[in-house]
Design a protein around this nucleic acid. Sequence first.
DNA 1: TACATGACTATCC
DNA 2: GGGATAGCCATGT
Length: 103
Amino acid sequence: MATIFQQSVWEALEQIPRGKVTSYAAIARYLDTGAVRAVGSAVGKNPNAPEVPCHRVVRSDGRIGQYSGGEGVPTKVRLLSEEGVVTREGKIVDFEKVYWDFG
DNA sequence: TACATGACTATCC
DNA sequence: GGGATAGCCATGT
């Protein structure tokens, strides 16, 4: 059962442009809430995997974080790499350059 | 209704 | 600079 909160999170994810990443904190801020952990839970339960680019969400410190799909984090890293987001040792390279904010 | 948990973050040694 | 601890809101049992 998807709650309004979760749907809001997923809508936010769709706004992330290709080749960019954002953080859970940014989404929480966009939703005008400080529930960064709840955001993580919502993203992880995302039932619209292909529609929603949940792999474009990383931690605020530039690390990949977690992933619940395919092979897990390796899959997330691969997807990001395909979009031009280079990662290394589970961390985003040039994080500030590929970081995208809601505005 | 109350308790425990989580794809996190910020702070404090 | 790196590891550990507390705080946070929403969800599921």
